[in-house]
Design a protein around this nucleic acid. Sequence first.
DNA 1: GTATAAATTGACTGGTCAGTCAGTATGTTG
DNA 2: CAACATACTGACTGACCAGTCAATTTATAC
Lengths: 217, 217
Amino acid sequence: MNRMDPVHDKRDAILETALVLFTERGFYGTPTAMISREAGVATGTLFFYFKTKEELIDTLYRQVKSEAGAALKTGVGEEQTVKAKICRVGKNAIAWATANPGRFRFMEQFAHSPFVSTTAHEVGMSHFLFLQELVRDGIREGIIRDYDPALLCSILAASLAGISPRIMATPDPEKRELLGQQGLAFLWNGLAARPETDESCNATGVTAKRKGADDHD
Amino acid sequence: MNRMDPVHDKRDAILETALVLFTERGFYGTPTAMISREAGVATGTLFFYFKTKEELIDTLYRQVKSEAGAALKTGVGEEQTVKAKICRVGKNAIAWATANPGRFRFMEQFAHSPFVSTTAHEVGMSHFLFLQELVRDGIREGIIRDYDPALLCSILAASLAGISPRIMATPDPEKRELLGQQGLAFLWNGLAARPETDESCNATGVTAKRKGADDHD
DNA sequence: GTATAAATTGACTGGTCAGTCAGTATGTTG
DNA sequence: CAACATACTGACTGACCAGTCAATTTATAC
């Protein structure tokens, strides 16, 4: 009986419920009794699977980070150029956040929180190291500015985290598409050694139109 | 006796202590008794100035956000062009975060936290609305890409928040300066309708060198 | 079927903590 | 001085909650 065993309905229910409640009410704002009740299990069951409440949120954080990292990587291997690869990652990021708003908000909230252990934060980071490699490749090829790769990655990650909520809050799918294109165009032009005046990521179909839906707000 | 009265040593001590403890240990992780003890006042005094613990963190959040907003604005009026103004804001942001790491981390941690009331979050946002106006001006002048201004501001804010910790973690002042220049160059090229290949913000002395200190890490 | 282990239950407890309150000190005003 | 208000104190309390544990059910092995 180990973690690989796929039949742990109650364990999964606890994790899923905790994700929602922690995001809505915070860590200490959510009693373990509430988690177990909502998950439909007894209080003891929670502590059977997770020694402490901290271990629960740590597991959750690791899981979500790992999922997100995997989501960002999908299809990157198929792309030929560094630019296309990075655009793919960007699109993946926005798509993942949009499809998993709960998980995205959980990460957002606990990314800088002291409830999650330092090691969990470090393990979480490790899933995004491939981005740094990608940036280094781009610099080597002369297609990305010769700036500090770690800095570029931080900006990239932070920007994607900044773009996503804006897109998630937009109901109209066309407007969403447009915002996504604009956001990615911004990022690519920030990175690019030879930035383009009017379009970006067009090889993969992401061409940021001037307008489209339109200025409001 | 009101909030304008400058002599409230104990109130100030409570706020300052709470800022540090909340950042280090989280909201529910910090008992009010610990705050009052560390601040050198009685438990009752804390509840004399703040009806509840929530009111304390709300006040704190508003105060820090307002301080940060004011810091970003300094000297912007003196600058002539939109580009110079935006670069000024960027430099101000990095300088403020570096000079006030405690406050920066507090904002970072509680920006997405449910402990801070919705209205406090809204009031906090309002201090940064001038940035959006700046971006609109730039678009009108044709110097900034005609993208959604709110989106551009979100990216700008998120990126600055992403750059700052990296710079704060760099001990060597020269390297710091370089990273700051690179970060601002990234942002400007993301925004600019006519991006520059090799430099940015040079009017105000922020020219991002190719290398300088160097790749390590 | 019997034995052994894993999974699950929920009443219970020991400790913690936000907030109270009755009282004291420190002005301020007439 | 008396009367009144503000500032401040710290022991106390009622509620709440993480984690325990003895007992029960379910699954697996022989």
